[in-house]
Design a protein around this nucleic acid. Structure first.
Lengths: 141, 141
DNA sequence: CACCTCTACGACGCGGTGTAGTTTGGGAGA
DNA sequence: TCTCCCAAACTACACCGCGTCGTAGAGGTG
């Protein structure tokens, strides 16, 4: 039984392709975005040599892993990231935390914060405050 | 060039073996611990069928990935986890955050916290407080 | 010496990923 | 209508990581 982990991991090229989809999504002003195989291929061709079908295969696999969705656009498919970069990052981090079956979570988080810049700590505090306010003000214990 | 990511990811069996090393480390009261191939194999044999050399190979690969260290113990090697489970977890989480080249880190962290239990939030706050106190009391800005 | 135990090294199968060629189906123009 | 082009679909292949062992040596012990 050769390994499982049930976690869709990104390869190098897959990541690059996701980059372009994310860029396309933000560039198109939230509402739309996405890209066809040809569009992604054209962009990648500017940076390195790569076959059209290679891009197609990658997009296809990403779709099978539910990392992207697709809609018809004429005869071609238009691919969209299923999650934002931030959401995917968070998911992956969470999966790590869960998979490792850490008993002493506080210590793990402490180690994590050890490597954090003060900017990052600020980001974290901001996020924490946001969550708390969303959950409603806590009664003082 | 088939992928790289410079990230030592754990397979299923590798993880199981690490479990045993971590257990051995804590069971031995901080100071020592570690385990030989035979010890790990004996323990695994109780749960499933597995060859001695399989365990050896895994330990070997873990050593090459610097996830364990080893010292001579008679004719055998004694293997020690290079990091605690918590430290490794934190490392992996951090690597994810860095690799994904997230620009909006705050949003990513927000997504991360979205999936957190309130226990986990408490752990995080405790860790955060610890870091802050360690860095010395901040002068009010 | 014979034996036992450990290490070192190599091997094989399988799935994932990078990479691409070949086949097929359907619109668009001559 | 017939042809050509484009995009999709399918297939293929190599390489690497990991689970899985086997075999060959080396070095103590009875």
């Amino acid at each position: 039984m050769p390994h499982s982990t049930s976690a869709p991991r990104l390869g190098d090229l897959e990541r690059v392709v996701m980059e372009h989809l994310w860029e396309a999504a933000t560039a198109a002003g939230a509402g739309f975005g996405g890209a066809t195989v040809r569009e992604v291929h054209d962009r990648l061709s500017g940076e390195r040599e790569i076959a059209y079908t290679t891009v197609m295969t990658v997009l296809d696999r990403l779709a099978k892993k539910d990392l992207v969705t697709r809609e018809r656009d004429g005869r071609a498919w238009r691919y969209f990231p299923a999650d934002t970069r931030e959401a995917l990052t968070a998911q992956t981090m969470r999966r790590t935390l869960d998979d490792m079956e850490v008993t002493d979570r506080r210590t793990a988080l402490l180690h994590f914060l050890d490597g954090a810049t003060s900017d990052e700590l600020d980001d974290l505090k901001a996020a924490l405050a946001e969550i708390e306010s969303r959950a409603g003000p806590q009664p003082s214990p």
